[in-house]
Design a protein around this nucleic acid. Structure first.
Lengths: 334, 334
DNA sequence: TTGTATTAGGATAGCGTTTTCTTTAAAAGA
DNA sequence: TCTTTTAAAGAAAACGCTATCCTAATACAA
């Protein structure tokens, strides 16, 4: 049998109420008793039972992270884990635990998500944007359940979300090139219509416009999303438009540019400057090391957790959303 | 106020004991009442409070995943997330939840880990091999606390662990090349002394020996661990030993081989066959797609969870360990 | 002295389940 | 018909904690 609050109380010669107060740092306990009780707790290796506490307190001090974790999907979003880690660290520092729940089994109903919310398994949820569904969204709003969506899904304007500023990131990447004097700057996007690419492209155009360049006829290519497509699109772009510099919408695309440039004997960065986004997963398998606009997704996880905690504390704060700032990291290719 | 078992009981016109029995699928409940109760539960959107249940039941139906999640460390082991996902899926299918706890803040004491165990926050733990410390190891053993270590840490022989068979993987990779008639087969390892590289190399030697080849003078290179080092080591190996095929201890190393081969105008796979390990993170940024020995780490997470659950059910099963089997996936480079 | 704050600590009623033990009712046997 | 057996459902005691309300005891003011 594990040691309980009663054992501590008996051993320390106080009531369980007093022990509880010591545990929870409630004033109206004298220094002396506090120390005495803490001593006994330490000696008996006591740790309060979180279920009993949760039951009595009516909250869980637990946050659920909802995402699609099915095999294969995990690495399609290599940032998810970093976000998760950031959230975990922030939460545990505040005394919260983080549990991971997979919603990829949910049909439109969002059964797992609903369970977490209804069953009060968590005081709040962090949901990956791709994992949210309409019924879950409405449940969150209807119950005013503390939540934060990672990556603005645009599902419902009343949802709270956090995202990195992809438009600004695109703009910064482009400005970085323009500042260095590159004139003919190209953009290589992933699949047409894909959200992040589109936003980065938007930033690209904005930067060109601000520099008074002809953004409407700027060289823009679409790769289709995979590596082979990136190589092909890059080759075509280089041959047809002869850019001095290229903004790659992802570092898989950058890898494609490297490959194509190698085949066409275009030297990076002498004949072609390259800038890309995100450090992971490919950028450190490229030489020369590409310059990039880094989005600190770990921090994003931290911010998400902080925001969630803040909203939980003060439910008056209604819709809270947040855009994290990207940062330019110049390396060897610009 | 959330709906509780009492509400269900009242609404269904039965006692709370009956409702509880329905929830827990305990026999001695007639079909009729079961359906009636289930109906009410559905209608009122009832979900049992997990804390109350945990308190009464004296277990948590929760498993903790302990690992180093501090910023930066997360991506040094890109497989961790996949393992986590595998474990999560298996566990949730069995009615368990998974919570994530970071132990990187722990000094030698292993405070966070101890807390999880003592506080009974989890019925069992999955620990990443790199995250275990001596006091935690002894605590697990002393309390006979259900656990499984991912990646054999060799910390204490009484620990239960799961790992993939790296030696066999190295052997399979090499045999794959030898079967295809390549004679002069090289091995490119990461840092000297690094565990996984070493085991894969061991398998490499074993395969050569079995084929009656001179494994003692086989061409072996060490990259030092980073990309630039891989490129350099690969170039040296190619120039000095002129291998027909090379086993790369990781796919970062494979990326280096591609780069070096490109610079030396050695065609892959015509003049140099390549095989590597693991699909992630780099292999799909390489063209031609490298053949590889795949270690399904997602499955490893699943197996870890299954093993843990089995041990929890039957504590008689003492030390249980497990090696997962790697699998050869031939692609375009062999 | 008496009365009133103030402070430290205790008693105890929940919190929402599970589970054991009883009770009840219906079915079976005599 | 009256017992005995069996199946189904209920009563109530935990589970370990929190939090509210109380009670002493001490300090202070009048």
């Amino acid at each position: 049998m594990a040691v309980t609050i009663k054992d501590i109380a008996r051993e320390a010669g106080v009531s369980i109420a007093t022990v509880s107060k010591v545990i929870n740092h409630i004033p109206s306990i004298s220094q002396g008793t506090a120390i005495k009780v803490r001593d006994v707790m330490e000696r008996l290796n006591y740790a309060p039972n979180s279920h009993a506490a949760g039951l009595a307190r009516k909250n869980t001090r637990n946050i659920a992270f909802l995402a699609n974790l099915r095999q294969g999907e995990a690495f399609e979003n290599p940032h998810m884990f970093e976000i998760l880690c950031g959230a975990q660290n922030t939460l545990s520092a505040k005394g919260y635990s983080l549990s991971l729940v997979d919603v990829s089994g949910d049909k439109e109903q969002g059964a797992s998500a609903q369970k977490v919310i209804l069953q009060k398994e968590a005081d709040g949820v962090i949901i990956h944007g791709a994992a949210i569904s309409k019924p879950v969204a409405s449940l969150l709003i209807k119950r005013a359940f503390p939540h934060i969506v990672i990556g603005h899904s645009g599902f419902d304007t009343r949802l709270c979300w956090i995202d990195s500023n992809h438009i600004l990131a695109g703009q910064l990447a482009t400005e970085h090139l323009l500042e260095r004097g590159y004139k003919q700057v190209a953009f290589l996007a992933g699949q047409e219509g894909e959200d992040i690419s589109r936003m980065r492209l938007q930033g690209f155009c904005r930067a060109l416009r601000e520099y008074g360049l002809d953004w409407e006829n700027a060289p823009i290519g679409y790769t289709g999303g995979d590596y082979a497509g990136s190589v092909a699109a890059a080759a075509q772009l280089i041959k047809e438009r002869k850019p001095e510099a290229v903004v790659c919408a992802s570092n898989l695309i950058a890898a494609g540019v490297y490959k194509a440039a190698g085949e066409l004997e275009v030297k990076i960065p002498k004949e072609l400057a390259v800038i890309t986004f995100d450090r992971y997963p490919y950028s450190n398998a490229l030489l020369p090391v590409p310059s990039l606009v880094h989005i600190n997704v770990y921090d994003m996880g931290c911010e998400a957790a902080k925001l969630l905690l803040r909203m939980m504390k003060n439910p008056a704060l209604q819709v809270q959303s947040f855009l994290t700032l990207p940062e330019v990291i110049p390396n060897e290719t610009t």
